[in-house]
Simulated assay, not measured.
Amino acid sequence: MNTPLDKSEFEALADFRYQLRRFLRFSELLTRRHGITNLQYLLLLQVKGYPGREWACIGELAERLQAHQHGVVSLVSRCEKLGLVERRPGREDRRAVEVHLTAEGERLAATIALHHREEVKLLGGVFRDLASQLR
């Protein structure tokens, strides 16, 4: 852990951040073209991609988005106004809130995810190569 980095490792880390930023910029422009923010898309993606089910609770989404719960509540409210998600009472705990995609949220998430899938495939090899350059 205390081994100093050599020049090639700095270059690999810099390139990793560059490639990551290019992907994020691609995503920002794509979501904007579809009329939503990148954060709104990330919410849709996390609901649709939540492991083992088709919905997620606010706390789970906060963890997946690495955000505060109150921020996620606001984000869900904005997406709800756009007709992309709906809130439902928890199945086991009625105090909990389940977030579900609407048909429009499903459609939009699928459309944007198709474009992301292709971009991630392109980056896969780049990231493998960069990881091999680090000691």
Rank of each mutant, 00 (worst) to 15 (best):
T3C: 05
A12N: 11
H100W: 15
P4D: 04
G125T: 07
L122P: 00
L5S: 13
H100C: 15
E118Y: 11
R32F: 14
T31I: 08
W55V: 01
V97I: 13
V72M: 04
V47A: 07
R33D: 14
S27N: 07
L5Y: 13
P89L: 05
R91V: 14
R53V: 08
G49L: 08
E28L: 10
K7R: 07
V76K: 03
L108P: 09
L24F: 12
E86W: 07
H116C: 14
A12T: 10
L30V: 04
Q40H: 15
L24H: 09
V73P: 03
A113M: 06
H70R: 03
Y18D: 11
T3Q: 05
L134T: 11
H116L: 14
I58S: 09
R21P: 00
L108K: 08
S27R: 07
E118W: 11
I58T: 09
A96V: 13
P51D: 10
F127S: 01
K48P: 04
C57F: 15
L13A: 10
E106D: 09
R117P: 00
Q69S: 13
F23D: 07
K81I: 04
G49Q: 06
L108F: 01
G35E: 08
L82C: 05
L134V: 11
A62E: 15
A113K: 07
G90D: 08
L123A: 03
E11Y: 05
L61A: 08
E118P: 00
R94A: 13
R88G: 05
D129G: 06
T31P: 08
E106A: 05
Y41V: 01
L13D: 02
L134Y: 14
R95A: 12
S27Q: 15
H100E: 03
L130H: 02
E63V: 14
A109G: 01
G83I: 07
L24K: 03
V47R: 00
L75H: 02
Q133C: 12
A56L: 03
R94I: 07
A14M: 06
V126L: 04
L5N: 10
R17H: 12
N38L: 15
V97H: 01
G125H: 08
L30I: 03
L114F: 05
G83H: 10
A96N: 09
S74N: 07
R21W: 05
F10P: 05
E11G: 02
E98V: 06
L82P: 03
Y50A: 02
R25P: 02
L5V: 11
P89E: 15
H70I: 05
L39H: 02
